[in-house]
Design a protein around this nucleic acid. Structure first.
Length: 930
RNA sequence: GCCGGUGUGGCGAAAUGGCAGACGCACAGGACUUAAAAUCCUGGGACCAUAAAAAGUCGUGUGGGUUCGAGUCCCACCACCGGCACCA
């Protein structure tokens, strides 16, 4: 517990927060906007249009405003970006630093189901709390650009972007999205005069099958407790990411987004952006690209039907089974084949004798949840179908099995098993006594059983092809060419990435701008609402639960659902990720009612060039994005996907949204455990703020350690930086005022201004030329803070500020010019205290040219930092024996003789042969003796 | 199992291949005070030694290597954290 207040932060902080609000100090200006001459930006950049000033777009991951309020993890990233935003402003850049609310989401809806309170109400309350908390930290956001994903003025454009996706297809030839109208029909559907209803329906179906937003009937993850389906990315270990409820596979009609079309670009473009290796790796793994070949195996139904061999080769018959393999070079080693139990050919190929066993097995597998299936993975199970396949390379018959270690959802749902060179196949073959045939020789002569690495092909010859002797890479190429030439296979690239399941059975989300109609063939089809009908608002409801029939809650609003012309509205809503996919674009032009973002604003803030401007643009897109790792494969992948679609369609000017991205590390509790209510180790930011103030809180979160590291909270650590701020205060303020302060430190905030005015600067602060040592201390600090901020090393920057203050406290005379520059350095970190002292310094020693928030960052003079006298360590055989104080430019020869003459060195070299002497001027001397 | 990250005092940490431990916390001693709080000053890796010191030895997860010199570079391993995981 802190004792007496170190300084009246409780008066200073509200005062300056109100001041910044009043003057809209951190407002950023769009191209063409007229800046009032009174605005601090205009004072720093007089008579220059805003778009001529180089921009810096620094973005936080906007929070979901939960009922629990801000936790200490939020301000960690926000403080880092705020420090940089303030620093970049001081460096003369035009900074865009916005904040908003990712406010659609399940908690508000669940609360609504429980209490009947409309989620809008809950959301508004939570936003109010979050905004108050965030504002109390003194962040320099441009609040005129605040966005809220649940605001119809916002989600109107989320729906609009959905229409763009709906009305586009991915052209593999141009490798980009194009308007659906540009999609050519296959010849049989080409217009030939009067088109029948049937042809029209076929055309519609054809287009619908190519859209980036499409309807699918596939099995999806259904969560009973949440009453909704979930995307792959939202399912972790067979449970919902939110709440940890069980999920099951269930075939349902759902909206999907064709993110798989962008798999290659999402992967490739990672090379163009500056993200951490681990994050890029997570995205790479999620996309899961693997290169290999598809091979068609003909099915030979023998045994129980002898002679009935159907030697299908080209895959055109249903009786060929296509497998995917990354190791086509091991084709000769395929001794059996495995289908996923769900594979659609299983029933067709199963022989009567095996049917009972196969059906049993399938039923067993269906009972298992995916979690169980993964947990039991160690123990391989499966049954023989009775059928055989023909290996196309050597016409050998191999048995076809089904086993749940083969997944229906990956590749073709079928594999050729090469037990000699695949761990899983090896286990399976061992268990079921299937033949194991070596086809790769390990390079080092190790055991080939289960050897999965590269080597040399062996035992891989037939009448038409031989791979023997070829190294793995070459064998892959050769066999793939052979497969292609013989029309029984081809080179393929496979991805783990699945299309994005985009609909939810929820109330609190964006409704789809889609209606369903019935075609003349009696089948339902979908159409979009016109853009003019946006925003499409959700209907008011009293009951937010799904209907008894399992329909989404929106289906309860029958007036809303049923339209006069007989069509019905789509009742699913979009997932929470929709709003966060593009919020960084809305910030650019948040109030625009005509378009989601004006091209001029987009080009200025995101583009690489601006016509007619000399502004330099070091980076395209968002210059720096800071947030947690938890969104590695969710938000960050989805947003990149949407951005690429908008890029292809010409709405944005960069292929990637976030040029540089930094993940802040997790803050643990004081017990080094994850903060959680159950552990009782949660730190409430409001409590820390009341006790130590915002500046101390900000400073501590940055001083804890490197931004990206996981680190434990320490309240005594907060006291440390708080004491530092107290020393800064006392460096400036005179002792008489200190006494007065002690007597008044309980003053209420509304008396704050009056009280603060009574406090005077100390008499040691004078307008005088600084001593060389004082200048040196200042410039060392400027250098360190500047370099550390450029490298995002906030902790060491703060320690440099502490070093300066520790020294400055000893000065009897404190030159105003030195202190003024120090305040500019302090401002990004502790803006409130810096402002208060800056205003006092200006009142006493003459007004500064710029308000502190836009005061130019001081340059440092390296010449001032050169030492005249340096300490040179002297080592003997690398061990430190003495330290000599010498003139900095003492020549090497003299350093050597000085070192040898040292009393402390002599005992270690006397009587020994000096083999070598390493002398590095200004650095060290190392004497090597025998 | 695979991928990524991290291992340095009692704790958070710092160190372009060149004096390991800056800065801060906690701790101890002192000054101020009737006293406390606050503040200021001093000390501090371990071992050995001593009345006290100096000197010395060891020391950045472990074991090797490169180098005049390694926390830093290379090889092999161990532990912890995060992610992925029957992905053919």
């Amino acid at each position: 517990m802190a004792g007496r207040r170190q300084y009246p932060f409780h008066l200073i902080e509200p005062k300056w927060q109100a001041h910044w609000d009043r003057e809209q100090a951190f407002r950023a200006w769009n191209p063409g906007e007229k800046i009032p001459s009174t605005h601090p930006f205009a004072k720093r950049h007089p008579n220059i249009p805003p778009e001529a000033v180089p921009k810096f777009y620094i973005l936080d991951m906007f929070p979901y405003p939960s009922g629990a309020g801000l936790h200490v993890g939020h301000p960690e990233g926000y403080t880092a970006t705020d420090i940089l935003a303030r620093y970049k402003r001081a460096r003369g850049l035009h900074v865009l630093h916005p904040m908003g609310w990712d406010a659609f989401g399940l908690p508000a809806e669940q609360y609504a189901i429980k209490t009947g309170q409309h989620p809008r109400k809950t959301t508004e309350q939570n936003v109010t709390t979050f905004k108050r908390q965030i504002k109390s930290l003194g962040f320099s956001y441009d609040w005129t650009r605040e966005v809220d994903t649940t605001d119809p003025k916002y989600f109107r454009w989320t729906q609009w972007i959905f229409l763009k996706l709906y009305n586009s297809w991915f052209n593999p030839e141009s490798n980009k999205a194009e308007p659906i109208d540009s999609l050519p029909y296959p010849c049989e559907l080409e217009s030939k005069g009067s088109d029948s209803a049937e042809v029209q329906a076929k055309r519609r179906a054809y287009r619908d099958s190519k859209r980036l937003a499409y309807v699918s009937e596939a099995p999806v993850w259904w969560c009973e407790q949440l009453g909704t389906v979930l995307a792959n990315e939202e399912v972790v270990d067979g449970k919902s990411e939110v709440g940890g409820f069980p999920v099951v596979r269930k075939p349902m009609r759902q909206w999907m987004l064709r993110i798989t079309a962008y798999a290659e670009r999402l992967l490739q473009d990672l090379d163009t952006i500056q993200w951490s290796d681990s994050l890029k790796e997570m995205q790479r793994n999620w996309i899961g690209r693997s290169e290999g070949a598809e091979v068609d195996f003909a099915v030979a139904q023998c045994g129980e039907f002898p002679g009935n061999e159907c030697g299908v080769r080209d895959g055109s018959s249903s009786m060929a089974i296509r497998v995917f393999t990354t190791r086509p070079d091991t084709l000769f080693g395929a001794t059996y084949m495995v289908l996923a139990p769900e594979h659609k050919l299983v029933d067709e190929i199963t022989t009567p004798g095996q049917r009972a066993a196969v059906n049993n097995y399938k039923a067993e597998v269906a009972k298992k949840s995916d979690l169980e299936r993964a947990e039991l993975a160690k123990d391989k199970t499966g049954v023989f179908t009775g059928a055989y396949a023909i290996n196309p390379v050597n016409a050998k018959r191999i048995p076809i099995w089904i086993a749940d270690y083969v997944l229906a959802s990956y590749g073709t749902g079928a594999i050729m098993a090469v037990p000699a060179h695949d761990t899983r196949d090896f286990e399976f073959a061992t268990k079921f006594n299937l033949p194991i045939l070596q086809v790769v020789a390990p390079p080092t002569g190790q055991d080939w059983h289960g050897y999965v690495g590269d080597g040399t092909a062996v035992h891989s010859s037939s009448d038409t092809i031989s791979l023997d002797g070829l190294p793995t890479a070459e064998a892959k190429r050769t066999i793939t060419q052979w497969l292609e030439a013989n029309k029984c296979g081809r080179k393929t690239i496979n991805y783990k990435l699945r299309d994005w399941l985009f609909s939810r059975q929820r109330y609190w989300g964006e409704p789809f701008p889609i209606v369903w109609k019935t075609g003349r063939d009696g089948r339902p089809y979908h159409e979009t609402l016109p853009e003019s009908a946006l925003p499409l608002l959700p209907p008011p409801l009293d009951d937010y639960k799904p209907t008894a029939e399992g329909q989404p809650p929106l289906a309860r609003a029958t007036d809303w659902v049923n339209l006069p012309d007989g069509s019905v509205r789509e009742t699913n809503t979009m997932p929470q990720w929709a709003g966060s996919c593009w919020y960084y674009l809305r910030y650019l032009d948040a109030g625009n009612a005509q378009t989601f973002c004006s091209p001029a604003a987009e080009k200025y803030w995101m583009g690489t060039t601006t016509p007619g401007s000399t502004a330099t643009r070091p980076t395209p897109g968002v210059d720096l994005y800071v947030g947690g790792t938890e969104h590695a494969v969710l938000h960050l992948l989805y947003a990149r996907f949407w951005h690429k679609v908008l890029f292809d369609l010409g709405w944005v000017s960069t292929g990637e949204p976030f040029f540089k991205l930094v993940n802040q590390g997790l803050i643990l509790g004081e017990d080094s455990q994850k903060m959680s209510k159950s552990r009782g180790n949660v730190i409430n930011p409001d409590v820390i703020l009341a006790e130590y103030g915002a500046d101390a809180f900000r400073l501590y979160e940055m001083f804890m350690g490197p931004l990206e590291m996981t680190k434990p909270w320490s309240t005594t650590g907060v006291e440390g930086v708080y004491r530092f701020l107290g020393r800064v205060w006392r460096l400036f303020v005179d002792e008489a005022s200190e006494t007065e302060f002690e007597q008044n430190c309980t003053a209420a905030p509304d008396q704050g201004t009056e009280f603060l005015e009574k406090i005077r600067l100390g008499s040691a602060i004078v307008q005088t030329a600084p001593e060389p040592a004082q200048l040196k201390a200042l410039h060392a600090c400027i250098k360190k803070v500047t370099e550390d901020l450029d490298g995002l090393r906030f902790n060491t920057a703060i320690s440099a500020l502490m070093v300066f203050i520790n020294e400055a406290m000893t000065w009897q005379v404190r030159p105003a010019a030195v202190l003024r520059e120090f305040l500019i350095l302090l401002q990004p970190f502790a803006p409130h205290l810096a402002e208060e002292l800056w205003s006092k310094l200006n009142a006493t020693t003459g007004a500064a040219q710029h308000p502190l928030t836009y005061a130019p960052w001081p340059p440092f003079d390296s010449a001032l930092l050169v030492e005249d006298v340096v300490e040179i360590p002297v080592q003997v055989n690398g061990k430190l024996r003495d330290v000599m104080k010498v003139q900095v430019n003492t020549p090497a020869s003299e350093l050597e003789s000085l070192a040898k003459a040292s009393d402390k060195v002599k005992p270690f070299i006397e009587g020994r042969t000096i083999k070598k002497v390493i002398v590095i001027p200004k650095r060290l001397v190392n004497i090597v003796v025998a």
